[in-house]
Design a binder for these strands. Structure first.
Length: 192
DNA sequence: CACACGATGCGCT
DNA sequence: GCGCATCGTGTGG
């Protein structure tokens, strides 16, 4: 049990510098933290997707634009974008500086209505102002180490809501977690 | 400058 | 399963 006055212990930059797929898997079980008002809002990460310079990514063709520039920057920063005229999505930048990569957070446990990337942002009060924020040095928004429970399995399946590269199984979630936005029963059987 | 459309979610059929 | 809200961005004329 942690006291309310505990100083943040954010995951260090080295955690996010690795290959996007590995960082994505490793983020499962970690805890996203945001100071909101007088308290800290926390959610356990239970569903993620990896994006690099693949055809479904905002950094497709490794093409850098003002909009996706954060994805090319140093790891451990927040990449927040606005979509469908009303929703925000929250990513964490991966890979060494100069190489594009990010992990989209799609589901949290421990909060109501934090399943799905847009609802996650609403539940965590994350928005446009957080784009580019360094999560490894900020005392406002950060990620803390977590753990997977004994026997807790990772399901590996395809990403959601994209048209390109639908064959890639770059979505990962924790089996049985209520914060998962969309289950894949077939993939769960493969998991065992 | 016009326009198509999206890493979504909600309500209705 | 389908339509739609609502707007920033990329692309093409």
């Amino acid at each position: 049990m942690q006291s309310a006055t505990t100083v943040p212990t954010p995951l260090p930059r080295a955690f996010f510098t690795g290959p996007t797929l590995r960082v994505a898997r490793t983020l499962l079980g970690c805890v996203l933290c945001h100071r909101v008002g007088h308290g800290i809002r926390r959610g356990r990460i239970v569903e993620v997707e990896a994006y690099t310079d693949d055809p479904a990514s905002h950094a497709r063709n490794a093409r850098r634009t003002p909009h996706n520039a954060v994805m090319f920057g140093p790891p451990g920063h927040a990449y927040v974008y606005f979509t469908y005229g009303m929703h925000f999505c929250f990513n964490i930048v991966t890979e060494p500086d100069g190489k594009p990569g990010a992990v989209l957070l799609r589901g949290l446990d421990g909060l109501e209505h934090a399943n799905g990337p847009a609802r996650l942002c609403r539940a965590m009060h994350i928005g446009r102002v957080h784009n580019g924020l360094d999560l490894t040095t900020s005392d406002l928004l950060w990620v803390e180490p977590g753990h997977r429970r004994r026997g807790e399995r990772i399901v590996r399946t395809t990403r959601i809501g994209i048209r390109m590269a639908q064959d890639l199984r770059w979505r990962f979630y924790l089996l049985g977690s209520p914060g998962v936005s969309k289950r894949d029963v077939t993939a769960e059987k493969r998991t065992g």
